[in-house]
């Protein structure tokens, strides 16, 4: 459990971090909490020559209320997110999920940006942030651009972030009135990663009809995806238990090939996706007031 040799760099600003990234093209990696990258380095499954530590860059940490939503710095830890009063007020879903990530030590160090950029197929935040419809901001030494979360998750451990870009901010739009949210996960008993996790956001109108729904699934396939077929079935109905059940049955439709490993076969994951979706949607609906 020893890493290969690397050089440690600790820039003070995002601009400087971006400059370092472009200088050491392909040989440098950004590290913040180090909860994904450092274990891989210790196992020598990743051997970056340069490690750019962004955890001390002030502009990357913290939660700000902006017009239309919250802006969360990419290097903000799960613990800070879970404990934040504004997050708890506006996005209980984020706090609920943050509290379920791995264990206390990981939550104290691990960051929202790290989770999204690493894109672990069983990570909690990729699904939660996808359900919340966030917009990400990333900077290279040349430009800053906005990336919709919908276009961010590309494949297994792969995002649309370019090698020269530093992920800066996660912007989450406020939820409509009468919206309920829930994150339901079956966790791997060893790693506490999601075997399957589902984030659900349900909005109802005054007469209880579902006017909008966003459901995202993690753990089931190579990347977190939205269960759009499920969402479509939900919208426009005054939801009953059996309607939710019918909708949840389609929650795996966008997964394609389900993951199979020593903990859960593809068939079992497909089944859990349906159960988790049903439970998450039911809970979210119960909270929509």
């Amino acid at each position: 459990m020893v890493t290969a040799q690397f050089e440690y760099l600790a820039p003070a600003t995002v601009a400087e971090a971006a400059r370092l990234l472009s200088r050491y093209k392909g040989e440098a990696k950004i590290v913040a909490g180090g909860q994904s990258l450092i274990p891989l380095m210790k196992l020598r499954l990743a051997e970056p020559k340069y490690l750019i530590d962004v955890s001390n860059i002030k502009e990357l940490s913290g939660i700000k209320e902006e017009r239309g939503g919250l802006a969360i710095g990419a290097a903000t830890t799960y613990d800070a997110i879970g404990a934040s009063a504004v997050v708890r007020k506006y996005f209980p879903l984020l706090a609920e999920a943050a509290g379920q990530v791995a264990d206390l030590q990981v939550r104290n160090k691990g960051t929202i940006g790290g989770s999204l950029a690493h894109a672990d197929p069983a990570g909690d935040f990729p699904a939660v942030i996808l359900a919340l419809g966030a917009e990400l901001e990333a900077s290279s030494s040349r430009a800053t651009r906005k990336i919709s979360i919908e276009r961010f998750n590309v494949d297994l451990l792969t995002t649309s972030l370019r090698p020269s870009e530093v992920l800066k901010t996660v912007r989450i739009p406020f939820l409509a009135a009468r919206t309920g949210t829930a994150y339901y996960k079956f966790e791997n008993k060893a790693s506490h990663y999601a075997v399957v996790g589902v984030a659900a956001i349900v909005t109802v109108n005054a007469s209880g009809v579902c006017t909008a729904a966003r459901v995202a699934v993690t753990g089931a396939g190579p990347k977190a995806v939205r269960a759009k077929r499920t969402e479509r079935i939900l919208v426009g109905k005054a939801l009953t238990a059996s309607q939710i059940s019918t909708a949840a049955k389609r929650a795996g439709a966008e997964i394609g090939d389900f993951n199979g490993d020593i903990h859960a076969s593809p068939e079992y994951r497909a089944h859990l996706t349906v159960v988790a979706a049903e439970r998450a949607i039911t809970r979210a609906l119960g909270r929509a007031k």
Partner: peptide, 22 residues
């Protein structure tokens, strides 16, 4: 309920860390 050392047919220990050995 949870613990098991799992080998592949080829003799690789698939539950080779606490990520997979509960």
């Amino acid at each position: 309920l949870v613990e098991q050392a799992v080998y592949s047919n080829d003799g690789q220990l698939l539950s080779g860390s606490m990520m997979d050995y509960a």
